[in-house]
Design a binder for these strands. Structure first.
Lengths: 328, 328
DNA sequence: CTCTGTTTTGCATACGTATGCAATATACTA
DNA sequence: TAGTATATTGCATACGTATGCAAAACAGAG
């Protein structure tokens, strides 16, 4: 029993008004008398009418769609991010056109998809963007915002945690507790998050004249687990390990446990992100809490306050350290 | 420097053809001579032309958009599912309009959003749907498919793992190993997944005349952890625990570890889903592997093979058990 | 070269909405 | 009451594409 989708025209006929009037009833701010508004709304309700977003977008160029691109990784942090984005965007009347990409760089093709649908803005989370792609989007006046990333080569908005200062504070914490044998496990080294956290962390110790050990990870649990395991087997048991994110820290933590090294008594472990899992009793990981909600709010602000691409903004938020059971 | 979005008309002018011809070049199967096709494509390339999906959808009613709804939970299983869906749908030329919902039941409002954008199909994952909402979608001839769920009250497609037989096999495995003191920790009890897994599991033991313990969980780690902890503190240490999903099983596993109960020597633990985490060395959880890829394939098949809503299909796939270190 | 059958093209229109402009209805002032 | 200002409405058109139909171009046969 296929019900025909009703158009504004049919509502208009039944309500004895013109299609324009029906349109105006559904256009916020348009001029309609209270009486006709009610009349039209009543009929519309009966017919189950709702404006066609495609036709509407065709004229207004306001599609109320936002393109959200994300890379395929196992980090649950981004799952949370996605959820928050979707909720908050909907609250502002936006729908989310979602793209998961396996590629290191977002492909031209994926962006074309966004363009075809006239998205009003593009948010890129945990994925890289070539400057060529950004340029193309900006050619069409579509603002681009990097979430949890920044890139000096790209002239576009960016919202992230102030990773450098956060890592710096973590370093200070470790230093003040008196630990001197320290390890940093990086994430993917071509990500700004990993780079900044490494910089903030190592710079602090450099100033103190302390050498720390850098293990090159890739933001996966497995890599971090193995790096730590190998290090321990080679006879190096550090006093403190800072992982570039929680997943990394958890990998290290499990490797320590496997060798029956007591955390935090013999070695302390600190992560970054505060994913759900980190608060599980078995892990109870001390970590840096990213202010996700705020970060998302700022991102949405950027794209609604029709920020012009010629003058992109960079927002850095602070977050805070949370002490659990992997530190003393 | 805002570049104007070019339309088929402008390409047509430069190529000395009509707009219709340009349209036909971009419409698979339309009649265009090879010579003009090349000419048009060349100009289109130069102007960076691409068809406007909105205008196209307005006429053809083919928007190439699929609505995907998901509930807000912490289970990483659905993160994987989302990724696979997006990739495979894109491969078929579909874009994904994504909705995250916090509500137990998907709201009318969310569905309206899908309708406004003329999505061609709706996939619901880990969320409930009222029959009223399904009816509305079907009124408009939009096929609805439940993923990893089924619901007798809803006349719509459904794709899931054969939870009953899977749980049955797990029960058989446990029985054959000789365990008799057995616990099942449920998920949210209003989900078909939890119900079916419970049924398949308990029915097996009922036939053998064995009573098992049911703990009512909610698919969260915390709940499962506490249930297990309380049980152990009350002096009940079962020989086998089956969790309605991996998160549940991991909660139980951690509670066991906390009490220094040796797994699998004193108690074995089995989960369901095979999320990434389950293969982490520290957990190494034995579990039932859901054939996600196949499940997604089947779902997409259902919606592309313009299955009529009057004759909805139910697909159940098998999956397999994977033995890791929480079983012997 | 002519005639016929087939491909390729252009013309016109439709999809469902928003909006500038002019016409009409209403409210307000004196 | 008449006159003016304002609010409300309808008309016509535009957005960018697809498509039925008829015209035009082409290919093949004789």
């Amino acid at each position: 029993m296929v019900k025909k989708v009703v158009s504004a025209m049919e509502v208009a006929k039944l309500a004895n008004v013109s299609q324009s009037t029906v349109s105006r009833v559904f256009t916020p701010g348009a001029s309609v008398s209270e009486k006709t508004r009610e009349k039209v709304l009543k009929i519309a309700e009966e017919l189950n009418y709702q404006p066609n977003a495609l036709a509407r977008g065709l004229i207004t160029k306001k599609t109320n769609m936002v393109g959200l691109a994300m890379k395929d990784i196992q980090n649950p942090f981004y799952h949370e991010v996605l959820g928050i984005f979707t909720k908050k965007l909907r609250a502002q009347g936006y729908s989310v056109l979602f793209v998961y990409t396996e590629n290191e760089e977002i492909q031209q093709e994926e962006i074309n998809h966004f363009l075809e649908y006239n998205v009003e803005a593009v948010i890129v989370t945990d994925a890289l963007l070539s400057s060529k792609v950004v340029a193309k989007l900006q050619d069409y006046d579509i603002p681009v915002t990097l979430f949890n990333r920044h890139d000096k080569n790209l002239v576009c908005n960016s919202v992230s945690c102030d990773n450098i200062s956060a890592a710096n504070e973590i370093a200070a914490y470790i230093y003040e507790k008196g630990y001197r044998d320290i390890v940093f496990i990086t994430g993917k080294i071509n990500t700004s998050t990993s780079q900044d956290r490494q910089k903030g962390f190592t710079d602090f110790f450099k100033n103190k004249g302390i050498d720390i050990t850098i293990l090159e990870g890739d933001y996966t649990y497995e890599k971090s687990f193995n790096l730590t395991k190998n290090m321990l087997e080679a006879g190096h048991r550090p006093e403190a390990i800072f992982g570039a994110n929680d997943i990394t820290a958890l990998g290290a933590l499990d490797a320590l446990k496997k060798r029956n090294i007591s955390v935090p008594d013999e070695t302390i472990v600190i992560g970054f992100d505060d994913i759900k899992m980190s608060s599980w009793p078995n892990y109870s990981l001390s970590t840096w809490v990213q202010p996700i909600e705020q970060m998302v709010d700022e991102t949405i602000n950027l794209l609604t306050s029709d920020s012009n691409n010629d003058n992109p903004k960079t927002v850095k938020l602070k977050g805070h350290f949370i002490h659990r059971k992997t530190t003393k």
